[in-house]
């Protein structure tokens, strides 16, 4: 990270800066979504953008997720670079045909002739006491579809650099933001930078166990690594940052070094991101493993409302610590 002029800004500010910079750089970039203009979204992530770029480029839509996502596909094919805002990740279900059957397929079905350079920004994550339809982490759904790329930033620095790259990408990219993270601060350089898609980041180096963690779970894994250190276990924390493209090499190399791995992701484990990454590690580092690869994700239930119920559905620093300790045969 270039450290000249590095400031502390929030995750939301980092997202907003990325958008503003790309909109200044490229007149084809525009934002489309519900309450994105004057309201700046319910999370205020986009506050101020309409003042700078006007309503031609920050477009409030009706509550028509399929409709404006489909419109973005056509706009992207014909020379624009839409950034679609889906207020809650739970609502991506409404856009599935537009993303999975249209955006993801256009380039391939046309023999490489049409392109869909669009970004969908949306959220993931529970813990806001929002119940089952405002708390899901559904990024695995899009990660399953060839033709889409999926980005999961876990820090303000990553959010800014990855979003700028996503906007410049020639393909449909889905960008998931943890809504619990919007107010989290972190160092972000004032100068321009971008981060390539498909490059994992080692958030903490260690020798005894690899914790692969995404998005909201990166902080959880770092917390667990701190607890593990107290009992003499050195944990490496790796954030793949994109589920597709997936930096398989960095993950496998880490486990070759540590011989143990836990994969932690806020989506459902079954048929999910953790399953895929665990398989990649098992295939790539089989002979180096001293224990089966463990997976931790949301409990396999709709996310409940009541705090004592919701809290047990998510991996925590403590639960990751416990699993890691058992895996390392420490008591």
């Amino acid at each position: 990270m270039p450290d000249t002029n590095t400031r502390e800004i929030t995750f939301a500010e980092a997202v907003r800066e990325a958008l503003a910079e790309e909109m200044r750089r490229d007149a084809r970039v525009f934002i489309l979504g519900e309450d994105v203009a004057e309201a700046g979204t319910p999370f205020k992530v986009l506050s101020g953008l309409v003042e700078e770029f006007g309503t031609k480029r920050v477009v409030d839509t009706p509550i028509s997720e399929a409709g404006f996502t489909g419109l973005a596909v056509g706009a992207a094919m014909t020379g624009l670079r839409p950034v679609v805002d889906i207020m809650f990740g739970d609502f991506i279900t409404l856009t599935m045909d537009q993303m999975a059957n249209q955006a993801a397929k256009v380039h391939y079905m046309s023999g490489g002739k049409w392109r869909v350079p669009m970004v969908m920004r949306t959220t993931l994550g529970a813990a806001r006491r929002s119940a089952a339809q405002h708390s899901q982490s559904l990024h695995a759904w899009f990660s399953h579809v060839p033709g889409l790329k999926v980005v999961l930033p876990s820090t303000p620095y990553d959010a800014k650099g990855l979003l700028k790259t996503a906007i410049r990408d020639e393909n449909p990219v889905v960008f998931f933001e943890d809504k619990m993270m919007f107010k989290m601060k972190g160092p972000v350089p004032a100068e321009e930078y971008t981060i390539p898609l498909g490059v994992a980041d080692v958030k903490r180096e260690g020798d005894d166990i690899t914790l692969v963690a995404t998005s909201s779970m990166v902080q959880v894994a770092l917390g667990a690594a701190g607890l593990l250190e107290e009992i003499g276990v050195s944990a490496e924390v790796i954030d793949p940052r994109t589920t597709w493209p997936l930096d398989e090499k960095t993950l496998v190399d880490s486990v070759k070094k540590t011989s143990r791995a836990i994969v932690i992701d806020e989506g459902y484990g079954r048929y999910g991101v953790t399953a895929e990454i665990a398989a990649v590690i098992a295939e790539g580092a089989f002979h180096y493993l001293d224990a089966p690869v463990k997976r931790m994700g949301a409990m396999h239930v709709p996310i409940p409302f009541s705090p004592p119920l919701e809290d047990v559905t998510l991996p925590t620093e403590r639960s990751v610590f416990d699993v890691a300790r058992a895996l390392c045969n420490r008591s």
């Binding site: 419109l71 973005a72 056509g74 094919m77 014909t78 624009l80 537009q98 249209q102 256009v106 046309s110």
Partner: peptide, 29 residues
């Protein structure tokens, strides 16, 4: 799925109503 940029053909679509978004987006563009 016949598609052809040279003639402005954004593509035939095998999802019924699958291209209403694409056409509207092209008009937006």
């Amino acid at each position: 799925h016949i598609a052809d940029p040279a003639t402005g053909n954004l593509g035939a679509n095998a999802i019924v109503a699958g291209s209403v978004g694409i056409a509207t987006g092209a008009a937006f563009s």
